[in-house]
């Protein structure tokens, strides 16, 4: 095929096409991110995110940042490498939260009748803002991966404490001490999700004077660093513009 000829002649037309492209492609990007990222997240860390009585100091803090960084890293590659746009992480996390809120309100509350306060998703925007801003300031995947991802893991718990702390106030109930979150899990019957299925607070907790959170958060940050680089790589692989004659 010869040289592709242009379909337009003026700068004004060109601008109009560019605008049209943005108008339709950006919604496509947003929708596909909500869908793909949400299914990824719900099936890797969903249980911790669904229920208030899963949000513990060990597993939730460790798992969420690690599995949450996959898509932001991939989109950092796509949007930064090809467009110099530093919003991949925020787009992912804001999109995920939008998808989660719709489902929590319409399905968990509107269909299964759980109280909304029991199924509020984790707050993940601050981590995303940090990752994006480190990329913008440093203009480097390396710096973002090492420093940004570490902060990403570290601030997850403190960023959520303002939301979950009220549910960790103790209650005496039928002779037991429970947190309010535990009590909600017990009160609002989940026939298919018994108490023991919660993956929470395991281990002997004999570290740093029982301060479990900093260790978990630090570990999450550490793994997030590696996960970030792996996922920049996967983002790169999936953004490859390969053409073949035949498959």
């Amino acid at each position: 095929m010869g040289v592709v000829r242009s379909a337009i002649t003026t700068a004004e037309q060109q601008h109009r096409v560019y605008k049209a492209f943005d108008w339709i492609v950006i919604p496509i990007v947003v929708l596909v991110i909500i869908g793909a990222f949400h299914i990824h997240f719900m099936l890797t860390a969903g249980d911790w995110d669904f229920w208030i009585d899963w949000k513990d100091r060990r597993w939730w803090v460790t798992i969420t940042p690690i599995t949450l960084i996959f898509f932001p890293a991939a989109l950092h590659y796509l949007f930064w490498q090809h467009f110099r746009l530093p919003f991949g992480a925020t787009l992912c996390c804001a999109g995920l939260l939008a998808g989660e809120w719709v489902s929590r309100v319409v399905n968990f509350v509107g269909w299964a009748y759980y109280p909304l306060n029991m199924v509020v998703p984790a707050e993940i925007i601050p981590m995303a803002l940090v990752l994006d801003s480190v990329l913008l300031i440093s203009r480097s995947f390396l710096v973002t991966g090492v420093i940004g991802s570490m902060i990403w893991g570290l601030i997850f718990y403190p960023a959520n404490w303002a939301i979950i702390a009220p549910y960790h106030v103790p209650v005496e109930y039928n002779g037991n001490m429970m947190s309010i979150a535990d009590l909600m899990g017990y009160s609002y019957v989940r026939t298919g999700t018994p108490e023991y299925i919660r993956i929470i607070e395991e281990g002997t907790l004999r570290t740093f004077g029982e301060s479990v959170v900093p260790v978990s958060a630090f570990f999450a940050g550490f793994i997030s660093v590696f996960a970030y680089f792996i996922w920049v790589g996967i983002g790169k692989a999936l953004a490859k513009t390969i053409w073949v004659k035949k498959l």
């Binding site: 009585d53 899963w54 949000k55 513990d56 100091r57 404490w161 702390a165 009220p166 960790h168 106030v169 103790p170 037991n176 001490m177 429970m178 947190s179 979150a181 535990d182 919660r198 929470i200 607070e201 395991e202 479990v212």
Partner: peptide
């Protein structure tokens, strides 16, 4: 932390 000085971990 100041508002909720007394909190406990989830009970398992």
């Amino acid at each position: 932390q100041a508002k909720y000085p007394i909190t406990i971990p989830l009970q398992s």
